[in-house]
Structures are given as C-alpha cells and as structure tokens.
Design a protein around this nucleic acid. Sequence first.
DNA 1: GCCGGACTGGACTGTCAAGTCCAACCAGCG
DNA 2: CGCTGGTTGGACTTGACAGTCCAGTCCGGC
Lengths: 204, 204
Amino acid sequence: MSLTPATQQGRATKERIVRGAAALIAERGAAATSLDDVLAATGASKSQLYHYFEDKHGLVEAVVDHQCAAVLGLQAHALASVSSWEDLERWAGMMVAIVEDHGARGGCPIGTLAAALSDTDERLRTSLAEAFRAWSDAIRGALMRLQANGLIAGRADIESLTTFTLSAIQGGLLLAKTSRDAGQLRIALDGAILQLRANAAGRP
Amino acid sequence: MSLTPATQQGRATKERIVRGAAALIAERGAAATSLDDVLAATGASKSQLYHYFEDKHGLVEAVVDHQCAAVLGLQAHALASVSSWEDLERWAGMMVAIVEDHGARGGCPIGTLAAALSDTDERLRTSLAEAFRAWSDAIRGALMRLQANGLIAGRADIESLTTFTLSAIQGGLLLAKTSRDAGQLRIALDGAILQLRANAAGRP
DNA sequence: GCCGGACTGGACTGTCAAGTCCAACCAGCG
DNA sequence: CGCTGGTTGGACTTGACAGTCCAGTCCGGC
C-alpha cells in the first residue's frame, strides 16, 4: 500500500520517482533495476522512496499501474477515433511508426512486464490482465463502430476478433523487438486487418 | 564460452545443471534465479558450476540454447507432419492442450525469455531471434506442403502468412498466460487458421 | 513567532548472491 | 604403484542491494 502524498511537492516527488523507475524498468526489467539506480536517475533519496512506497514491490506495483495507464490512454484515444477502414490503417501505421522510432527496441511495456511478472506475482498478474482487458474493450469499441457503420457484417464474432487482434498486436511487438525489425509488427497488423476485412459486410 | 566436458560423468553433470537451471528460470525468470537455487535444485556444487560455465551469464546462455532446442524440436516435429487442414487443427489442439495442462502458466519459454532478455543482452537476443527464425521455417514448411497439396492458393504470400501465424502463436500464449486462460490461445490460433483458410485454393 | 506534520538527506546494517580458491577425489595409464 | 588431468566439495571473500533510522528542513495554521 503506497502512501498518497498530502502536498503538491510530495505529489511531484512521488510522480518523479515512478516515472524514472518506469523508464529504467522498461529498458532493463524490474529485477535488473535497483533502488539505487532509481534514486540516482531521479535525484531522490532513500527516505523519499520509502516514505511513499512500502518497499520495492510497492514501487513496482506503482510502475505497472503507471505503464498500463499510459499505454491504455494512448490506445483508447487512438482507437476511439476509428470508424472506417482508413482510420484502422492509420492506427496500424501509427503503431509501426512508434516502434520504428524506438529502433524496434522495448516492444510493448505492458507485454514485457506481463511476460516477466505474470508468473512471479499474482497481484501484478491480475493488474496486467486487467490492462489487457481494458485494451480489448478499446478494440471492441472500434470494431463495433465499424460494424455500426456497416463495414463489418452483423453476424461477425466481434468478441473473437477482438482477442485475435490483440494477440496479433502483442505477438507482432514481441517478434519485432526480438528481431529488431518493425516490419514483423507491420505484417502481423496487416494480417489482423485483413482478417477483419474478411468479415466485411457484403455489398448492400 | 562454456567448457565441454571430457568425460561421460562430466557431461551428465553439465546436462543436469542446465536442465535444472532451465526449469527454475522458466518459472521465475533469469534474474530471480540465483546460482544457489540452481545448486540446491540439482545437488551440484559451486565448483562444478564454475568448472563448466564461465559465469552466471554463461549459464543463462546455455539455458537459452537448451530451451530453444527443446521448443524447436517439438514444433519442428509436430509441424513436419502437417499436410492437411485436419493436421493443422490437430496441431493447434495440441498447443492448447499443452498450455491447459500447465494451468495456463509459463507460456512459451522462448517468448518469455525473449521479452526479458532481448533488451538486456545482444548475444542472447540474436539467439532468440534465430530460434524464432527456425520456428518460422517449420511453419513455412507446413504451409508450403499445404500449398503443394493444393489447399492453399499458389499466389498466396506464404512469407507473410508464416510471420503472421507465429505472431498469433506468441500473442496468444502471452494473453493466455497473463489471463490464466488457455481459451485466449485457442482464439488466436483459430483466427490464424481461419486466415490461412481464407487463402484456400479455389475449387479446381 | 512557533508548533506540528509532511517531507528530505544520507549514513548505517544485515543479508544474500556472485565469484574465488584450494584441498581433495577418482579414473586411466605408464 | 604413482602420476596426471578431469572432476568435486564447500569454505571464504567481496560487493551490492533492500531496508532502517534519525536528525534534520520546510511550510501552513494559530
């Protein structure tokens, strides 16, 4: 259980620690990130860290929540404006561009955390599972909008298509990061979109 | 660079250490596995470990190679016997069954290692990327067999379908492990197969 | 001004894990 | 038998890291 800061200053400090820790953990993993590393990177002191977080585990929890919120914020926003095939292509292009900009390193922060922490900590696993569920919700929303616009057939199994799309995203990100080639993500997303289009409503 | 044992006894010892370490690392991750844990689990001593491996990093390399070989052996074998849609369905069923048997924990050993180590160590990243490439080869082989049997159209883009299939596998495994629900893998694989069937050769 | 609580700096401690070292052990072989 | 080289047991050293503690500082309210 982490303490909620009472002052503006305290909030800033806690925020700074979480952001710094999130950056370090994203690039080297939670286990390989020491508290001293976080302290050095953020210019905070031991007592500040332990003032706001129970222990290292508490910090990691905060980082997980932070990353989930960040990724979901971006995805929910981007997917919320999808209501045509062109929009969907644009969204896919954005995903690939982001990965390319990072030199195809890191992949999806949530995916990486999920792979590493799901088997280690039950509480974190459920947080991550929840994040994937929320991401699914955003995708489902977009698909239903396409359906409402008559682009996807009414009888299509939206639920399965949603899960399938998310798995293509995650798998594509993992392959891209491992092979350092954003093209793998491109192929995975194109494949997923092709699948969606296969469910296109027939001409009226 | 790890030393190759000169005697039968030495070979057995090294093998025992790698297998034990692989099991521990698969369930808790490389960073969370101490050498003492490995020693305790295998009944080996410090000097044995350092006799056969340079250091911990060397052991992890050996474990990565071992896991890649194990998974690929299984996959290459299972995919080599695929030459009809029924075979492919059977293969998918096997994958889901394996995951279910493990209580949807752990996911793909290669995928988990890739997520954790790709950003940490370049040598390991290339090993993992190589493993994915070999896995792709096995998938491509199966698809080309389907194509040769007239089940997939000659003009289909086998290369993209291969990458797409692998990304569905990995994404499905990650979602399954995070949500502790093998059904997510089932959906991902069904989706991939549906996509392949969409490329079915037209009736002659 | 001054009191109390939120916040901060940083020294300190205990634990644990990586890696070293050496004294053995156990073949096979001359 | 005694030597040699591969192998083994386990104590020991060293360093890093999580977590503790206390002496403060800062700031709003009275």
